[in-house]
């Protein structure tokens, strides 16, 4: 089995990895690059805990062979977390207790990021729709929707850009 070399942009830096053919982006991130914010809840595309942004769009890294993202821009939760402090979405999750065990949180935050980039003032219904692929077994979702609403208020209220697209 010959390994293959794949290059892509990860959180603003160029990375080059040597992988077995059709290794998932999830596995490369977690096992090779140490980007473990991207979680592994099902590897079936069913839980959303491995959500990353590919060219700004949320995708499931467990279903993506890393070869498919060659030359593309991948952003994980590490990529939106400032060196000091928190992104406004993270602050809102923290303040609203939009998490309990924390396992679904990275996926939730990444979908929230993509949603607010597309639609800065989403309705609660639009938020619920956006996170419908992200399963949380602890919170019951309301605090998560509250957090995304709060983040939307802050980001659009202050005219702050969330970057990305």
């Amino acid at each position: 089995m010959a390994s293959v070399i794949v290059n892509f942009e990860l959180c603003g830096r160029d990375v080059e990895v040597l992988v077995q053919p059709m290794t998932t982006l999830q596995s490369v991130l977690r096992s090779q690059l140490g980007y473990t914010a991207t979680k592994e809840g099902c590897r079936q595309g069913g839980c959303g805990s491995c959500t990353v942004l590919v060219d700004g769009e949320p995708m499931l890294s467990c279903l993506l062979p890393v070869e498919d993202v060659a030359g593309r821009r991948v952003v994980t939760l590490e990529g939106i977390t400032p060196i000091d402090g928190l992104h406004p979405i993270q602050e809102a999750f923290l303040e609203s207790n939009g998490f309990q065990c924390g396992y679904c949180t990275p996926g939730m935050v990444m979908v929230a990021k993509a949603l607010l980039d597309h639609d800065p003032r989403p309705s609660r219904e639009a938020i619920a729709g956006a996170i419908s692929g992200n399963l949380c077994r602890c919170t019951g979702y309301q605090p998560i929707i509250d957090a995304i609403e709060k983040a939307a208020d802050r980001l659009s209220g202050s005219g702050e850009q969330t970057g990305g697209r």
């Binding site: 914010a37 590490e78 928190l86 602050e91 207790n97 998490f99 924390g102 935050v109």
Partner: peptide
């Protein structure tokens, strides 16, 4: 604010499988 909150929202919390 929960003591593990910042770890959870940044994804820096280390779970066993990580």
């Amino acid at each position: 604010v929960r003591s593990d909150g910042v770890g959870h929202v940044t994804g820096r919390t280390r779970f066993a499988g990580d």
